[in-house]
Simulated assay, not measured.
Amino acid sequence: MNLSQLNYFKKLAEVLHYTRAAQELFITQPTLSGAISSLEKELGAPLFERNGRSVMLTPYGEVFYEHVCLALRAIDDGVAAVSARSSASFGTVNLGTTFTTQDHYLPTLIKSFEEAFDKRVVVKVSQGFTNYLTEALHRGTLDVAFCGKRDNETDIEYFPVKYCELALYVREDHPLAQEESVPFATLNDVELHTYRRGTPIGNRVSKMLEEADVIGANLNYDDDVSMGSFLSYNGGNAGALMLDSLGAQLFSNLRQVRVEGIPDRFYTVYLACHKKHVHSRAVSDFIDFVKAYPGNDPAVPEAE
C-alpha cells in the first residue's frame, strides 16, 4: 500500500466513476483499475461494486474512506506546517460554498484575492449544501467554506460575511405578484414551498412558520436554485419562501413579495474553517483576506 493508491482510492470514492476519476487523476483507466485491485487484494475486502457504468462503495469501502481522508489530511497538515514557515504564499485553497454567495460576492472576492496575491494562489471552488460542506471541513477535503452555521460545531470557526433576506416569491402571473408586502396570515392561502428541516436555514424557517401559525408548507428543498426552478415552471397558486440569492435571480418571471414580520437580515452566511487543522500559508492568507474584505456586509450580527 502506497500514497498513490490511497489518493487514487479517495478520488474514485468521491467521483464513483472509473473513467472520470482517471481523467481527473491524469492517469489511464487500467492504471487506476490495477491500483484499486491491488489495494483490495492487500486489504482482503472489496472496496467498490459495480452500479451500471458507475461504481459505489461497499460497506468496507465506506469505512476505509473515512480513515483514508483522516490519514491524507494528517499528511497535508504536516506539509502545511512546513509550508507555513515560507515567506511566500503559494498553492491551492479548496473552497466549498452554498448558492448564497454565488451572486456578485464570491466572483468579486476571488478576483480581488487572486489579484492581491498575483495569482500565486489558486482557489478551487466546489458547490454543496451546508451539512455536506461542514462534514467536508471535518474530513479535511475542504480548507474553508461559505455556508450556514450548524449547532454544536465546536471545532468549526465561523466568521460572518454577508446576510440574505427571506421573502415570498411568486410567478409574475400569481395574484400576489403586484403586492409589495403581505401579512404572515396570507401564507396560509398559498401553496407554500420552502427549505427542509435538518438544514440551518430550514430549521430557522420551520420554527418561524410554527410560531406564526402558518400550516401546510411543503418543506422539501435543500437549495434556492431548485426551488426557484420549480416555481418558475409551475403556475397556479404556488409560492416559495426563499432567500434573495442566486436562486431567485436566475428566473426573470419571479416576483418578490415582502412578508410583514420576517426579521431583516434573516440568514447569515459565514466563512467556516476547522480550528484543529493546520492551514497552509495560502489558506491562512485567504482566511485573513476574507475577514478584512471590504465587500463583507458590515451590518451582519456576530450571532443569530
Rank of each mutant, 00 (worst) to 15 (best):
P160W: 05
L109S: 08
Q127G: 08
S126A: 14
F90P: 02
R139Y: 08
G148L: 02
T100L: 14
E114W: 04
R120V: 08
F146I: 10
T92S: 05
F159S: 13
C147V: 07
V123F: 03
Y158K: 08
D77A: 04
L72C: 07
N152L: 14
T134N: 04
P107T: 14
N131Q: 08
N94S: 11
E115K: 12
G148D: 00
G91F: 03
G148P: 03
G148Y: 09
A116P: 01
A88K: 08
T134D: 00
D118S: 15
L95W: 10
R139G: 01
K149W: 07
S83L: 09
L133W: 03
K111T: 06
D143G: 02
E114M: 14
A88G: 09
G91A: 08
V125I: 13
G96T: 09
A145N: 05
H138K: 03
F117G: 05
Q127Y: 15
F99P: 00
I110E: 00
L95D: 02
L109A: 07
R120C: 07
A88P: 00
A145Y: 01
G148N: 03
E153F: 10
F159Y: 15
F159C: 09
V82M: 09
G148W: 05
K149F: 14
I110F: 07
F90V: 11
G91L: 07
V125C: 04
D103V: 14
G140S: 11
C147T: 15
S112V: 11
I75R: 14
Y132R: 11
T92P: 03
T154P: 00
D118L: 13
T97D: 09
P107A: 06
V121Y: 03
I110Q: 06
V79L: 12
S86H: 13
A80F: 12
R139L: 06
E157A: 15
P107W: 12
E135N: 15
T108I: 10
R139P: 01
D143S: 04
T108G: 13
N152G: 09
S126E: 14
A136P: 00
T92H: 12
L137P: 02
G140Y: 04
S83H: 12
V79G: 02
E135V: 06
V121K: 01
F117T: 14
R139I: 00
D77K: 04
F99N: 05
V82I: 15
V125W: 08
A116I: 09
D151L: 15
